[in-house]
């Protein structure tokens, strides 16, 4: 699970949960896969990102130190964009958990695959 994916996930499908976002992360194992940097891609993704959620998740994974407190503007230099790129799409949580911020419901991550299935009585 990349942080781009994490930034799109909620637990609001659970009955009674209001926003279910952002999901807290428990990290047991991560993996880094280098991918081609494109500043256009990062620029295009920025408006979709919930920045505070991204920042918090990146800090949990230990890759947030180079990130600014607020989403960068268009004039931001490439060093910042590269650190965003690294945190957003190069680091993956392989083993761990996602935790609903409202109910503490745990969603296991195994082999990089979050299991977001709910039981019938939770929906």
């Amino acid at each position: 699970m990349k942080l781009l994916t994490h930034n799109m996930l909620t637990s609001k499908a659970i009955k009674g949960v209001q926003t279910g976002f952002p999901l807290n992360i428990v990290v047991k194992k991560t993996k880094t896969v280098e991918t081609e940097f494109s500043s256009e891609f990062i620029q295009r993704m920025l408006p979709k990102l919930d920045w505070p959620a991204f920042l918090k998740a990146a800090q949990t994974l230990g890759v947030g130190s180079q990130l600014p407190d607020s989403p960068p503007t268009e004039t931001t230099d490439e060093t910042v964009l590269r650190s965003i790129h690294h945190a957003l799409v190069e680091v993956e949580v392989i083993e761990g958990e996602l935790i609903c911020p409202e109910t503490e419901r745990k969603f296991p991550i195994s082999n990089g695959i979050p299991n977001m299935l709910l039981n019938e009585d939770e929906i």
Binding site: M1, K2, L4, T5, M8, L9, T10, S11, K12, A13, F21, V33, D50, N111, G112, I113, P114, N115, M116, L117, L118, I123
Partner: peptide, 23 residues
């Protein structure tokens, strides 16, 4: 099937289409 996606380095997660976990 999701394991097969992972072998292709794709982003994949397990859920039901009647309870999608997306923003």
């Amino acid at each position: 099937l999701l394991e097969i996606c992972r072998r292709k380095n794709l982003q994949a997660l397990q859920c039901d289409c009647l309870a999608l976990p997306f923003r």
